[in-house]
Simulated assay, not measured.
Amino acid sequence: MTPADTRRRERLNVSASLLYLVKRTELAVRARLDELLKPAGITALQYTALTVLERHDGISAAQLARDSFVTAQSMADMVRALESRGLIHREPNPANRRERLILLAAPGRRLLAEYAEPARRLEESMVADLSPEQIATFREALNAAWRSLS
């Protein structure tokens, strides 16, 4: 990279909108997570859905879609793919016979356990240049921004 390229990148980082910076970071995280998960044969979006189920097992596909940041149609395709791999299973909702609840299956739990440490290291690398106080402030700021838009 030439000095002119470096200066241009620095100007972009200072002048870029926060929306741009958040999206750029999200895309970088997603690319790294996709690379990390490639041996498992799942995508970052599928991994996100599994982590949602790990925290909130037995939810509807609509709720899983909302919590995983995907459309209902995308979630329908994802549920079929994850179910065919045996990572999740569905069962009738006792409170609503027309609805099926999605649950994390044992192989899905094992996959999450296997990738917990690599995912933690990825997160650590993302904030490696920040102090513990900056990390806490960053986390609080992201949560506050999300609450403002929700």
Rank of each mutant, 00 (worst) to 15 (best):
R8G: 05
I59D: 04
R66V: 12
E123K: 03
T48E: 14
D129M: 11
M75C: 02
S84N: 15
Q63V: 02
A61R: 11
G108D: 04
S84V: 14
Q63Y: 00
A31G: 12
L103K: 06
R90T: 07
A95M: 15
E26K: 12
R55F: 04
E117F: 08
W146M: 04
M78A: 05
T48W: 11
D67S: 08
A116Q: 11
L112M: 00
A144Y: 10
V127G: 08
A144D: 10
L149H: 05
L142S: 00
L87P: 04
W146D: 02
D34T: 00
E35T: 07
Q73I: 12
A65C: 03
E35I: 02
R109G: 04
R90D: 01
L64S: 00
L18C: 09
Y20P: 06
R66G: 03
L122Q: 10
S60G: 03
D67Y: 02
A128I: 03
A65S: 03
A105H: 14
G41E: 03
Q46P: 03
E10Y: 12
A65G: 02
E114D: 13
Y47E: 06
A16F: 13
F138A: 13
R147P: 01
L111V: 12
P107R: 02
A144M: 05
L19F: 10
P132D: 06
L45N: 07
A31T: 09
R98T: 15
P94M: 02
R11H: 09
L82F: 13
R24H: 09
T71E: 12
A28I: 12
Y20M: 06
V29P: 01
T137A: 14
A116P: 05
P107F: 04
A28W: 09
E54P: 01
D5I: 00
